[in-house]
Amino acid sequence: MTLHWRGLGSGLVVVTLAAGSAAAQQVDPRLERLDSVTRPIVAALVDSARATALPTEPLVQRALEGATKRAAADRIVAAVRRLALDLGHARDALGPTTSPPELAAAAAALRAGAPPAILTELRRLRRESLTVPLAVLTDLVASGVPVDSAAAAVLSLAAKSRDTDLVEFRRAVERDIALGAPPASATAAAAAVTAAAVQVNAGARQQRPGRP
């Protein structure tokens, strides 16, 4: 425990300084559920995030998850701090106008091992929200798909697929893995099928409605 606190010390100094007067702001009442040791540290991390215009809700939720699961104080603080850093890296990769849900999804993708350049490339390719493509990327890695295979598949689908297509794609991969397919080849095969289906659907959407 002592080691953990010491490790957290330098980060705390930074966040406290960065927070400045924000540190004195009223603590989110939901954080009352944290113990008296954890609460001020998490509150400082939240204030610091707010001061740098990062979304604070993911940090609060992560702390509350830890509290509800009765995690030790040092684990809660470490988790919140790590998430704050991931959110910052996500914004560096995606740009300052990124929405909070996109940043939260991007933080999870970075944590899963996606290189920041993949996030930047996704932003370039896709005009719509990146929340679902990033979440699909993260979930595929969690299912055992190598991160480069998952990233290549998501990038190949990002430009033209709707969110629902991407979610279906992820489900197809997970089912094939459950049925015994190697994760990387299951991903490539499902991506090819999804890309073909997206083209067909796009064509169908342009057709004149009429004949049932």
């Binding site: 699961k69 995690a71 684990r75 809660i76 790590r82 999870a108 979930d139 890695v141 979610v167």
Partner: peptide
Amino acid sequence: PVARDDEFGTPSSVVTVGG
């Protein structure tokens, strides 16, 4: 899908809502 970044020692899942 499982939440891979699970720091609290108990399993969590993830739901993604698209637009």
